[in-house]
Amino acid sequence: MLDDRARMEAAKKEKVEQILAEFQLQEEDLKKVMRRMQKEMDRGLRLETHEEASVKMLPTYVRSTPEGSEVGDFLSLDLGGTNFRVMLVKVGEGEEGQWSVKTKHQMYSIPEDAMTGTAEMLFDYISECISDFLDKHQMKHKKLPLGFTFSFPVRHEDIDKGILLNWTKGFKASGAEGNNVVGLLRDAIKRRGDFEMDVVAMVNDTVATMISCYYEDHQCEVGMIVGTGCNACYMEEMQNVELVEGDEGRMCVNTEWGAFGDSGELDEFLLEYDRLVDESSANPGQQLYEKLIGGKYMGELVRLVLLRLVDENLLFHGEASEQLRTRGAFETRFVSQVESDTGDRKQIYNILSTLGLRPSTTDCDIVRRACESVSTRAAHMCSAGLAGVINRMRESRSEDVMRITVGVDGSVYKLHPSFKERFHASVRRLTPSCEITFIESEEGSGRGAALVSAVACKKACMLGQ
């Protein structure tokens, strides 16, 4: 009897593995994704193909990295998701002549009506938060230079001027797309009239992360975010950046690689679950690469896999709870928690219980395998993109072996128990001629924006502006 049951459990697990095998990517698959990513990057950089390229390769006008001589107080704003952060950054000489960066910050959550109302409502709310922060720190009387981390696709015309191309991540505030974001912020500050600010720089969160990590390690020339969304930036040779005049030196390019796949480059790798996630998203047909990796989508992918296993009578005796059938019910943090389970399955059992399920031991094991399959594919897909960037940098610099540091931020990278190990191992397999160091950014977005502002202020002083 026991043997029969054991055989049935083994057969069930084997069927589960057959279904989950769809998520496995072979090294040849990853090399294919990497080569296609490089081709799209090239198209994004070139003037004649930029418009139709899915990977936009947006110039950021960040050319210099901090040298350690900029000092002063800077205000930093960070808008990239449902939370908005205001930070005071003091850049100065530390002990023994070292450079020191001290920060104080406060988080504000953005109400739904500000995210989806008008641009005026959104930026009025942001300036209200700045006003509140300055009151708390008794700094209303000071006109501070301000660095703005704005983590949406922007076409820069200068370091302090950028046109919002399109909202992502659930934002829909009308009247912002096609307009200068810094102008919208300046107008809102003017409307309030109770404080003055000098907006000197606007950067993407990947750029802010790279600059913040450069402060720790001067070989950091790539910034990457794996959180709600997924994106990367890197220092490109100016001669390859056709959208900006000049051939000397390097400029940081914001790849906006989340949109890779929007022209069909990933079609052969998309599964039924991916198509369902895409169809029910706020932007169907867009940001397809990001939807395979980002935390906004990972939990939902797992939920759809679990429903398939229920329908195949391989999980929960073929019956799903009402909660499990509800879109968004299986949160991405559950994926991390399930994979963090120590082996007694308590954590998995508790999560499934909150979803109205009474799982068996085998159910718990199957749910864990589903989570591992989805998150491992995410790590491997992400590795193909980064390997594409790094191999490109090595080739354009004609280096036999390139040493490089990548600064990384984002909740999936930082909080998932195995993502970074799987990701690092896969990147290294795909970049055999590179020695890569990964560092995690601390308060990256805010500190990085302030350091970019410090560079901009120093330049302005040198130019006598």
Rank of each mutant, 00 (worst) to 15 (best):
G94L: 11
C129V: 07
S100H: 09
V374T: 05
R308P: 01
L79T: 03
G147D: 15
Q38D: 01
R403C: 13
C364F: 03
G356C: 03
N313H: 04
G72W: 00
M8A: 15
F423R: 00
K32I: 05
K169W: 08
T103C: 14
N180H: 10
V277C: 09
F84N: 02
T228S: 06
N231P: 02
K459S: 12
A320M: 13
L271D: 01
T228K: 04
L415T: 09
L164G: 13
H317K: 01
D262C: 13
A387F: 01
I159R: 12
E120C: 07
G170A: 08
T168A: 09
T209P: 00
G183R: 02
A378G: 11
V310L: 04
V305I: 01
C252F: 00
T354N: 13
A6K: 13
L324I: 07
G328V: 04
D217F: 04
N204A: 03
M235G: 00
V253Q: 00
T60Y: 00
N313W: 12
S76A: 04
V335W: 06
K104N: 13
E272I: 06
S373V: 11
D160V: 09
S411I: 14
V89E: 01
L463R: 11
T362C: 05
M197N: 03
Y215V: 00
D262Q: 09
D262T: 11
A454S: 11
D198W: 00
R186M: 09
K414E: 09
S127Y: 06
Q106C: 09
E95L: 11
H380F: 06
G264F: 06
K39N: 04
V200S: 03
M57Y: 03
K459L: 13
G183N: 06
R325G: 10
M41D: 00
L355C: 04
V154H: 11
R308L: 05
R447C: 12
E67A: 06
E256Q: 07
E196R: 07
D124I: 04
I159Q: 14
L352R: 01
A454T: 13
V181K: 11
E52G: 05
N391D: 11
G299Q: 09
I130V: 05
G170S: 14
I189Q: 15
G294Q: 06
Q38M: 05
G68N: 07
S321V: 09
M238A: 01
D113K: 12
E67I: 04
